[in-house]
Design a protein around this nucleic acid. Sequence first.
DNA 1: AAGTCGGGGTT
DNA 2: AACCCAGACTT
Length: 355
Amino acid sequence: MNQKEKDIFFTDRLMYWHRVDNKRDMPWKGEHDPYRIWISEIILQQTRVEQGTGYYHRFIKAFPTVEKLAKAADDKVFKLWEGLGYYTRCRNLIRAARLIHTEMENVFPASYECILALPGVGPYTAAAISSFAFNLPHAVVDGNVFRVLSRFFGITEPIDTASGKKNFSDLANRLIDKKRPGSFNQAIMDLGAVICKPRLPSCDQCPLKIHCTAYLKDRIAALPVKGKKPERIERYFYYLVIRYNDKVYVRKRKGQDVWKDLYEFVLFEENRPVSMSRLKKLTFIPDKTGLATCRVTGISETHIQQLTHQTITARFIELRSNSPVSIPGYRAVKPSALLKLPFPKLITHYFKSIG
DNA sequence: AAGTCGGGGTT
DNA sequence: AACCCAGACTT
């Protein structure tokens, strides 16, 4: 079997499987509104379908059109994104919606290049929207596609290099069904999610197995090849939950660190754990300005959050003040307002723990 | 090219 | 505990 025949086998078998045997269903399947497809694709970046589905429904209900999203307050949008992670996606979603609102008369761009130019939209998302909404022949390349193609064609080149990405993209675009690019993209991702899974793939049910290189050579577990593996660093957060009357002090996180645009309490970060005795006296805080009128009323258990590149261990030190406290960058908010602000999972877990 | 950005499910 | 998920952006 030569290369061309193998290409044709791949596409034809994949499309037949999709038409006849693919039972995977998702809320946005068959959707052609580019706005809704865009929302779903951004939500699903590095996110499992099961995890993103609820967010998708809530988002579309709150913001049924790009104009509604463009006109919404930042914190209201972030509140809907709360808990989903990768919060830059939310920031870019807002930016793009406002671009479409103010510069494109609320009409979603209809070409691959213009879609790709939107903030938060990369090659994958541009191809997905192009093919699903506008039936344009651009092949998606996501984690599923890397896996399916590397295994079927026995490609050992790493997928996380510029060259590797280009080669996989070129291959996918060579294979794509030009008549039904949207269906092809859906099919290959579904096959990767349902059959050609990362571990313990269901090769016995695979429509491609008779010509799958990895299956025939028993190389399934070795593909795809990835290069880098991140090192995880340890961080220790000490949050001062300072109350004066019924208000508590918070700020919005800025800079380039994790949880940008989410809220938090008064933070002191250490390189190593701080002992309980020091916590009770707050002796680890270099500048105690403004805390003179505070007394410690409680110290929480440690709350641990595992992120991809770091492990954050946090404790919440609850304080009461008998006078207003002035802390640069922080403001006091009522409990009712607090509930409307977006917080990282670490802090919402703390909320749950204290009721 | 390498590093960074979350949170959760699977094995 | 390691790996991965409908990736994109910054440095």
